[in-house]
């Protein structure tokens, strides 16, 4: 009938959804994969991993990836570089320090998270400047 429609946009919605997903992760609710990183088991949701990482996108989107519920990353990132990335995926906040940045950069490169790689390079560059 051509009546003017209205849309109510809840501007906090995406961060509220992410916060709830992080709470589900911390409580192990609906987590569907265990990542063995440096021997340390980390539970996560494949959907979040695939949404955030080109590496996981290529693994879990394939039919073979559907049945995977434990994934070890041999020769992959060390836990101290991977854990901050997993937290970033679920919080949008990437914790970096001069001591951890190289390990996070290596893990982000491995996980094909290009935008985070660039941010790590900017951080390391800034850390080197007097």
């Amino acid at each position: 009938d051509g009546a003017l429609g209205y849309v109510r946009e809840f501007t906090r919605h995406s961060s509220d959804v992410l916060g709830n997903l992080n709470e589900l992760r911390l409580r192990g609710i609906l987590t569907d994969v265990t990542l063995l990183v440096g021997g340390q088991p980390l539970r996560a949701h494949k959907a979040v991993l695939i949404a955030c990482s080109g590496f996981f996108y290529s693994i879990f989107r394939s039919r073979a990836g559907v049945g995977v519920d434990v994934l070890s990353l041999p020769g992959g990132p060390e836990a101290r570089g991977f854990a901050p990335l997993l937290d970033f995926m679920y919080t949008s906040r990437l914790r970096l320090s001069p001591a951890t940045a190289p390990a996070v950069l290596a893990a982000a490169t491995y996980l094909q998270m290009e935008h985070v790689v660039q941010a790590c390079h900017r951080f390391i560059q800034a850390s080197c400047e007097p």
Partner: peptide
Amino acid sequence: QEGLVATVKEAGRSIHEIPREE
């Protein structure tokens, strides 16, 4: 200082874009 955290806002894209179904 131990524990001091400076937050830098990154306005750009944060993660890859999943290609839209052709």
